[in-house]
Amino acid sequence: MSQTTVRTWDEFMEGVWRQNPVFVMVLGLCPALAVTVSAVNALSMGLATTFVLTCSCVLVSLLRKLIPKEVRIATYIVIIATFVTVVDYLIQAVSLALYDALGAFIQLIVVNCIILGRAEAHASKNPPFKAMVNALGMSLGFTIGLFALGAVREILGAGKLFGVALFGANFQPWVVMVLPPGGFFVLGMWLLVFAAVARRKQRKLAEVAQNA
């Protein structure tokens, strides 16, 4: 791989793994917990956010030299709100069932801190292509996070994945997992898992450093 592709790949992977918005930065929690009662909902929310995040970041990046510094946040929000309105009407046209399932949370993408955070921290300082790659990585990371939550909650709370029953008829669904408390519990568990993995990695690194 040449130098530039490596850098682009790095830029992309940053959002997916090292700075994963859900598990590492713990941003955008509201949609992450509210819509993840099933894997399908989680994926659709992820896709909608991907669209908004990528489009807004590219537009912000294109306009970055035109937007006066004093009103930048307001400008970003208006840009984001425009794309959210587009997505809102799009989902309504494509699938009314999905629109009802996600409810107000489609419109609430506007106030997803990940999007404003990316626009301010990255897209306003980088050229469009770089901003797009970074935004795509972040979106993928967010979608993976949502899916991890949604899948666990659907498997435990309904005994299904993508609506397909996984266990026999004797399975007693763990209903609390699809109710609000379950969202908090599952995300808490995931964060514990991530903390434990990070700690093990650190210990290994320390051992290697000691032996060397």
Partner: peptide
């Protein structure tokens, strides 16, 4: 955060 989320779960 993990602990806060667990707490929030119990409150919820």
């Amino acid at each position: 955060t993990a602990l806060s989320l667990m707490l929030a779960g119990i409150l919820s």
